[in-house]
Amino acid sequence: MSTLEIRDLHVSVDTEDGPKEILKGVTLTINAGETHAIMGPNGSGKSTLAYSIAGHPKYTITSGTVTLDGQDVLAMAVDERARAGLFLAMQYPVEVPGVSVSNFLRTAKTAIAGEAPKLRTWIKDVNTAMERVNMDTTFATRNVNEGFSGGEKKRHEIVQLELLDPKVAVLDETDSGLDIDALRIVSEGVNRFKENGDKGVLLITHYTRILRYIKPDFVHVFVDGRIAEEGGSELADKLESEGYAAYVGAGAAGAGA
C-alpha cells in the first residue's frame, strides 16, 4: 500500500522579473487504489504540480514536502523518483533523436527493476503493450517520439506506464489533443493500470470528458496555485455544466453560477 503525500507545497519559477510563485500551498494525499482528478483553468498551476513531483529542474520548491511512503521525494534526483515508484505521463512527451523506442524501454525497465528483463518475455510484453493501445509494433524501431503524432506520443506514454508499472502515476493532460477513439484507448490503458493492483492515480485535466472513461474517487479544483474546492466525482459533473466561471475572475465576485 503506497501513499503519496503532498504537504503545503510552494513552488516558484524564475522569470525575467525574478522568481514567480506558481503553487501557493498545495496539500493532497493520494492513497493506493485512489484516483484523484485535478481540474482547473489554464495557468492555474496544474502542470507545475506534475513537474514538481517529477523533479523538473525548471521549478524551485520553496517550501512544503512531498513523500512517497514516508520517503522524502524532494531530496531524490529525477531518476531516483522514478525508481521509487513515481511516473509522469507528460503533456508534451520529448523527442529523443537517435534513441530507439525498444532501447529506451529496455534501458528504463532495467533501471527501474534493477536487472535486465528476460529477453524472451520482454519482447512479448512490449509487443502486447503496444498492441493494446493500437500502436504498430514497428514503432519499437523508431526513435523515441520522433515524428510521432500527438496521439501516438500519448499512447507511447501509456505503453511506458504499463511496462514500468509504477506505484503512483501522474497523468498531465494526457487527454488533451486526443480524438474520441484515442481518448478511449488511452483511458482503457489507465484503467488496466489501476486494476493491476493498489495503484495511485493523479489525473490532471482541463476537460471533464476523460472522466467519463476514468472514474475519479476525488476531484480537486485548482485555481491560482491552490485547491479551491474538493469533492467526489459529482464535482466533475458540476464543472461539466458550469465551467470554471465560479472560481475565476468575475466569478470570485459572485457573478458565477
Binding site: A82, V96, F104, I112
Partner: peptide
Amino acid sequence: FYLQSRGIP
C-alpha cells in the same frame, strides 16, 4: 529529463 523521469540514471 525525459530519460531520467523513466528511471534512467
